[in-house]
Design a protein around this nucleic acid. Structure first.
Length: 263
DNA sequence: TCCCAGGCTCTCT
DNA sequence: AGAGAGCATGGG
């Protein structure tokens, strides 16, 4: 399926490279092959137009996935007055917060623990190739049913180290219903976080990432080593009111800017 | 080679 | 409750 979508305040490149998703391949500066759970598309951004080719689904999926109807202009407006945030926004303010599948985000960020992004991507691609369904242009992210019944031995192919046992526990608790990923959608923030923390290997930071990148909870502010550096360097006396106006989005542009050495 | 990575769990105060 | 070691593995 081929189609175009008009966008504003959106950069495909910055969004994909900002560390919230791991299953994309850079064909060129403005062309990416993107997998999102069980969907695929090759996407080229030309100015304010996204050109989709070979999409496995219609445009509404991608409008939601890339949050193309989000209120990013107003989020950015709320950042005015915080010079660090303004600098980050001038560099990568066209990042959007994705709406990813909760199970994919949960497993992906379990694998992110004390790990680097290129290696996270590698492990996830092996996970999909070994346990996911074959698609026309690659592999889907494995469903919880497809991973149910796997043993630690089965996961050795991932080379995920100590994280394999966390994946196993997540699969067990999600498949049994002990952790209800569907229900979390309607939970209060604290209850949702409490639910995710039931899984071994999920701490405060990973729970926040799942809440932000799968459930669109912009109130959370995931703190990893990079954000820790940002806070130590610029916000020792506390987060600014501008950050607190939209913590999740602020965190993402601060994270990306810090990693790129721009702030 | 050596340090580090989108952290967390466990243990010891 | 707060600090610190240990964790599997490989990227740079």
């Amino acid at each position: 399926m081929n189609f175009k979508i008009e966008v504003k305040n959106f950069s495909l490149r910055q969004t994909l490279l900002s560390g919230q998703c791991f299953r994309f391949y850079e064909v060129s500066q403005h062309c990416f092959r993107v997998f999102a759970y069980n969907n695929f598309a090759e996407i080229i951004q030309e100015g304010d137009v996204l050109n989709f080719t070979d999409s496995s689904c219609d445009s509404s999926f991608w409008v939601n996935y890339f949050d193309l109807n989000g209120s990013y202009a107003s989020y950015l407006f709320g950042f005015k007055g915080d010079l660090i945030l303004e600098k980050a926004a001038s560099f990568c303010g066209n990042i959007h917060i994705l709406n990813q599948h909760p199970f994919e985000v949960l497993i992906s960020f379990l694998l992110s623990s004390n790990n680097n992004i290129s290696r996270i991507k590698k492990i996830i691609s092996v996970l999909c190739e070994n346990f996911g369904s074959r698609l026309d242009f690659g592999f889907a992210f494995p469903t919880v049913e497809q991973l149910k019944g796997c043993s630690l031995y089965d996961f050795e192919v991932l080379r995920a180290g100590f994280r394999s046992k966390y994946i196993l526990d997540a699969v067990l608790k999600v498949s049994s219903g002990e952790v209800d990923l569907q229900a979390i959608q309607n939970f209060s923030l604290s209850k949702a976080k409490e639910e995710l923390l039931k899984i071994r290997g999920v701490g405060s930071k990973i729970a926040d990432c799942v809440l932000l990148f799968a459930y669109h909870r912009f109130e959370v502010f995931p703190v990893d080593v990079w954000i820790k550096r940002v806070v130590e360097k610029y916000y020792g006396s506390g987060l600014s009111r501008q950050i607190l106006s939209c913590p999740g989005f602020a965190q993402q542009i601060l994270y990306h800017s810090m990693r790129k050495g721009l702030i």
